[in-house]
Design a protein around this nucleic acid. Structure first.
Lengths: 221, 221
DNA sequence: TGTCGATGTATCGAGCCGATACATCGGCGC
DNA sequence: GCGCCGATGTATCGGCTCGATACATCGACA
């Protein structure tokens, strides 16, 4: 889950941990609370050891400002810049493509679905459809469970528990309808968000005209 | 979080782990996926060591059915009953009351809020209001974050990310409105769920007429 | 008789979180 | 100029939690 998100963000441009966390938080906003540093930094180290990312010594200011050698931060009271930028390796890009294409049941969980969806612009149409339908089935099961609980145990529950179940049922129902709309749009080749204030002319639209694009190697802008 | 839920369920009647998990799953349905046994059993052991619960040797069938010895599970091929029922101790009831009354910021997280809400029938009115308002503030913050992200970065995001943010924003907005209704009902002394199919006459209604009831010792039925 | 799914208890490795610590930098008041 | 403070930024630790897995029992159905 986190791997895919980090690889996708670093695919756009190199970044350091702090910035990465901010982007992750907004990206996962609807589904998770936030990513802790206690999660992010071990993940970065693990991905570095796997060879998917490397430390990038200076992304924006390539030390050309003067003769100052910028000795790095490593030991406290010694050294300089405190930022460590990470960038994708070739293996990292490959890994990103693999993770985008392979869709297991774990892709239907709240957070994982959000990440996959956020990268739909780089995903081929067949995979998009599979993910949307798998997610729909997942939420439908949840909805039926709620509905059964409401019908079977209505008398045994007090008013507050009842209201909680009712609220959950409504939310699940709403998400199913949302997914259904998206699936229809996918099938007819329409991009989503026809109601968005900014139609984002041309450039930002996903590649939906040709189905089954290879889903790798696509410049963000 | 789990502690409160388990104590609350065992407060109604003794139960074994499997049953406990099923009830927890429906109770937390709207907010979490499910509680794993790898979470539940260590929690039960911890609560047992803390003295809040004890093993109950036979709740429904007190071995009076006959001379059949019901070989237990303990060691394979040795021993007796396979179910282990747990019940609350006096300390457990006390602990439950404490957890119900004390409301920190952790009570506003998705899952914890759901648990607190499910036990509102045993919570005094002042605490109910504090939890609802805290939760509202929490969701409002999330909503504003989403709104800002949508306004600031609308051009930089592709259509799918945009749609994801929009969907999350709508969900947050809806929950805020739901909370607001509940708060109004609390303030005017009305119980929730006026739109429920079963009005549940009398018996199941929470004690909302008298504010600041001591929030302990109340038979479920 | 066999075996299959539901019930039931239990553990393990790995992931993840909240709290915490510490360092740097720019701006603001004085 | 100077100190303080909040935002930026990296990092670790203990403990909770999950998914996978193992194993045992029981009723049903062929």
């Amino acid at each position: 889950m986190l791997d895919l998100a980090v690889l996708g963000l670093l695919h756009e441009s190199p970044m350091h941990g702090y910035e990465l966390r901010k982007r992750l938080t907004t990206m996962l906003g609807p589904f998770r609370a936030a990513i802790s540093y206690g999660t992010l930094y071990p993940t970065l180290r693990r991905m570095q050891q796997a060879g998917w990312i490397t430390e990038d010594s200076d992304p924006a200011e390539p030390a050309a400002t003067g003769s100052a050698e910028r000795p790095l931060r490593r030991k406290p009271g010694f050294g300089k810049r405190s930022r460590i930028s990470y960038k994708l390796t070739a293996e990292g890009k490959e890994r990103f493509g693999d993770l985008l294409a392979q869709v297991g049941p774990e892709a239907y969980d709240d957070a994982a679905f959000g990440v996959h969806f956020a990268f739909f612009g780089r995903t081929d149409a067949a995979t998009r459809l599979r993910i949307l339908e798998g997610r729909r089935r997942r939420v439908e099961e949840r909805r039926e469970g709620l509905r059964d609980a409401l019908n079977r145990a209505a008398e045994r529950l007090d008013a507050y528990s009842l209201e909680l179940q009712r609220h959950g049922l409504e939310a699940a129902d709403r998400e199913v309808r949302w997914l259904e709309e998206l699936i229809v749009h996918e099938r007819t080749g329409q991009p989503p968000t026809v109601t968005t204030p900014h139609p984002s002319p041309g450039a930002a639209g996903p590649n939906n005209t040709g189905p089954d694009r290879p889903a790798g190697e696509r410049r963000p802008d």
